[in-house]
Design a protein around this nucleic acid. Structure first.
Lengths: 341, 341
DNA sequence: ATTAGCACTCATGATCGTTGAGTGCTAACG
DNA sequence: CGTTAGCACTCAACGATCATGAGTGCTAAT
């Protein structure tokens, strides 16, 4: 249980440190216009807060900085959400409208604007396979033995890949197979596709083609790509402007995670709906122990349509970021329902 | 006109500096087993080479480092191309085969392996619009008023986008339009598409639809994306391991260029066929004056199918990189002809 | 409970030799 | 004349020393 004054002091320290990136001393707090305590009083409270694990001291003769636990308390209890500036609203509106006819494009574009507005890195995940189903499957012949397979999802997302026909399978065979797939798989969520493929589809297929195992695994491969959600990055270099990351080695670790999609996805595991904040070690990924991630899910009537994450230093402007994401996720949900319903 | 000894010294300095990133002194050269001159002799030649602008001195009491001009001479006259190691060949072979059924995937994947092998950054440009033509255009209805437009290129590349039907245009109208487009545009190179669209297609269209300007610009937008070649990046963070880029500010400038596609494309302007080396300021882009770019085009019978670029410090292992790209471009050309011919 | 006073700590930054790698020049050598 | 030994000179890098000052914890007075 913190006293009112302690809460105020913690809040002041977090705010100051977010702004300056430098340890905050008792004197600088007592000089604030809304504070009427002497530095000594504040020092006592600061010592208490440190004992509670909410503050840390880089070294004896420096000011205090918030600990992970301190940030957590701040985010949970003290934060004041930033409103979204009129001009920013306009910027988001205008530019999203521009890309309106391409859902994933719109989302990732919006995120890239947020990244510019905040000077942090934005990460966008497309719809996941639990909420996406197959809408259409099509084959377009390219040459005698090659064709483009096109997979369209109910979200409007399209995935494609060039396939080479196996020996002894004609383009006509493939056309029939494509028809079969549309019959059997339309409307099936992608996470179930593999199962259906090897049961229903396989049965039919055996009736008129031998050695269909090869074809099945080819189809599975083709459809598999859709299962993995797409990832978009923007403003990855923004971390470089943060003073705490002026050391190249620290930055390398972070950028490496961003560059490798699988490691990046790890960050987004076990997220629940709405807006979530993960501070420092809470992320559970070694390399970004010094970063915080704010995520917002975008969904319309039960469908998870995407996730937007903002990655910055633990010393992040939480209020501003949460405010922006809150606004944005609402706006994008509205956009989606208008477009696709 | 350089003497044989001067050429040897220049070569030795470049090689040493590439390896160590530190100024090379006369003593260290004279100690090489294949050298039989005294440091003093070497110093004299070094002074000459400096006067010719091939070498530079960071400060009076340091060794020499190659200048841009020095690297240029090295690349043009002294370089020994690196062979490709057996294990690297296997790696490239195996992994390219894996992605074989997806041309751009294969190229970008190969490039990412090169980036790992060299520890530099690889940049891949897809086929450009001069050598790509429309293969097929298709519309798939999503809802009452929206549809996915799919554009397939002769390279097997697929581009898509969700469009919203304009007021007063039915899905049936759109279907007829799609048929028309396939009639008129199949086989047309993308850089001509706009022209054909506004002449031939527009004429037909006017005969049965009013106010078709809106539709035309919608179609143009849809087809335009294909015009811009796709860009793939890999190993962007590798620069961070180079000692000359341990300063965050320098790195920031470079990574910023990599992150913005248009600025990145600028680097690839006015490239000719085959392998090209651009050293430091030769790139003509301020931010990467300290980097070199080695590019290789991949083409089969007149079609430019892609460009692979390797970006590293001016102190780059030119021999190794050129050797790898040379091998790779040949291999990919073979792969392409096997797949699509 | 708050605060003034004070001794104490310690990162930061300036100053100042020391060191050593590397140079340019001159004079001797073959 | 080309090559080399010898030598004085330069200058970045490093470490030691010291002053500075921001900030603390503790004690005693209010």
């Amino acid at each position: 249980m913190l006293s009112e004054r302690q809460r105020m002091i913690l809040s002041a320290i977090v705010d100051d440190y977010i702004r300056s990136a430098e340890p905050v001393g008792s004197r600088s707090i007592s000089k604030r216009s809304d504070v009427s305590f002497s530095p000594a009083t504040i020092r006592n409270d600061m010592a208490d807060l440190e004992e509670l694990g909410l503050l840390e001291q880089p070294h004896t003769s420096a000011g205090r900085i918030p600990s992970i636990k301190g940030y957590r308390y701040y985010v949970d209890h003290l934060i004041r959400l930033g409103g979204v500036k009129e001009q920013d609203v306009k910027r988001l509106r205008g530019l999203v409208a521009e890309k309106m006819n391409h859902w994933e494009g719109a989302v990732s574009h919006a995120a890239s604007i947020v990244s510019q507005l905040t000077n942090y890195t934005s990460i966008v995940l497309g719809p996941d396979s639990f909420h996406t189903s197959l809408k259409h499957f099509q084959l377009l012949p390219l040459t005698e033995t090659t064709a483009v397979a096109i997979v369209v999802a109910n979200t409007g997302h399209v995935e494609h890949r060039t396939i080479t026909l196996p020996e002894g399978v004609s383009m006509d065979d493939m056309r029939r197979i494509a028809g079969l797939l549309n019959d059997k798989l339309t409307g099936v969520p992608f996470y179930k596709v593999k199962t259906v493929l090897y049961t229903e589809v396989a049965n039919e297929l055996r009736s008129y083609i031998d050695h269909c195992e090869h074809i099945l695994s080819l189809l599975e491969d083709t459809l598999k790509e859709e299962t993995e959600p797409k990832v978009f990055l923007s403003g990855a270099t923004n971390i470089l402007t943060q003073p705490e990351f002026k050391d190249v080695d620290k930055v390398k670790g972070i950028l490496d995670v961003l560059e490798e999609t699988p490691r990046l996805m790890q960050l987004f595991q076990s997220l629940s709906e709405g807006i979530q904040v993960r501070i420092g070690t809470e992320n559970g990924v070694e390399a970004i122990n010094q970063c915080s991630l704010v995520t917002a899910t975008i969904s319309a009537d039960g469908h998870l349509l995407g996730t937007i994450g903002i990655l910055g230093p633990t010393r992040m402007e939480y209020g501003k970021v949460i405010g922006l994401l809150d606004y944005l996720s609402g706006d994008l949900t509205r956009l989606y329902t208008r477009l696709y319903k």
